[in-house]
């Protein structure tokens, strides 16, 4: 499309809508209306494609700020661990999680950014479930140890299975009620200790409508006494907001 400005009646009607749409400034109903129109109007679709680079350029107008090196270290530490879990789920054991170089995960950092970065993590649920769990869930082979997770409330049908491989693991849950908007489930790892060890925040996750979900526990299990699950505000919490709904005792 040329760089001319369309001024016909159709354009007068839709171009302002397209501009607001491109800037993500429409209310949901208006957005749906524009998307419905775009589906059947090649003129407006072309017009939008022409306009989008004007929005794409906006981030480039921001003064560059050098990101702190710790940011990359934190991101890559998590990425490295999760990549190792994926490889483990796929049956490729090398390199194991414990063998990966550590780049100071959590060292000198507040917990908040770590929590924010954990996000909702449902790790390749189908692949993990199919490849890691055996049919009866009691013998997965390799060096994995499987623990049963039980609901703390007798009336709750929630169940779970925790598969531990070294310091990391995967928790499979079932029969947990779906969370409401703005809520997630969060896993917690409690260290061993005679008076009850420290509780560490782990990954947050959601479950399907059937109450089924999988969540990776990237680390901390080699010295853990139990893994617990609570319901928390979206983004996760630094400390549990309620008593555990589901607990896997690790002996």
């Amino acid at each position: 499309m040329s760089d001319r400005i369309d001024s016909n009646e159709h354009g007068e009607r839709w171009n302002p809508e397209l501009a607001a749409y491109a800037l993500d400034a429409l209310d949901p109903d208006e957005r749906s209306a524009v998307e419905g129109h775009l589906a059947g109007c090649e003129t407006c679709s072309e017009r939008l494609r022409w306009m989008l680079p004007a929005v794409d350029v906006l981030p480039a107008t921001v003064a560059p700020q050098p990101p702190p090196p710790e940011l990359k270290a934190r991101i890559m530490d998590t990425v490295g661990r999760e990549a190792a879990l994926v490889r483990a789920a796929e049956g490729d054991r090398a390199p194991a999680v414990e063998d990966r170089p550590r780049r100071g995960f959590l060292s000198g950092l507040s917990l908040r950014p770590v929590l924010a970065g954990l996000g909702v993590f449902v790790l390749l649920a189908a692949a993990a479930t199919g490849l890691v769990l055996s049919d009866d869930g009691t013998d997965t082979g390799g060096s994995e140890i499987v623990y049963t997770a039980e609901a703390e409330r007798p009336s709750s049908p929630a169940t779970g299975r925790l598969e531990v491989d070294g310091d990391a693991g995967m928790l499979h849950v079932a029969n947990l009620p779906p969370t409401h908007d703005g809520e997630v489930y969060q896993a917690w790892v409690q260290d061993k200790g005679s008076a009850g060890g420290s509780v560490h925040a782990s990954s947050v996750f959601v479950v399907s409508e059937q109450g089924v979900g999988d969540v990776a526990i990237p680390h901390g299990l080699s010295k853990a006494a139990r893994v617990m699950v609570t319901r928390e505000p979206k983004g996760g919490s630094e400390h549990p907001s309620e008593n555990s709904l589901l607990t896997a005792e690790m002996g």
Binding site: P59, V62, P68, E70, I75, T78, A116, G117
Partner: peptide, 30 residues
């Protein structure tokens, strides 16, 4: 760098920008 700069421009503080950039990149990774 561009991601962190944009996050900083929007949220206005370094800690918040780090959280946003980390959350965004891990979302992309996952």
């Amino acid at each position: 760098g561009a991601a962190y700069s944009l996050a900083y421009r929007i949220v206005g503080d370094r800690s918040g920008a780090e959280d946003v950039a980390q959350e965004a990149f891990l979302s992309i990774w996952r």
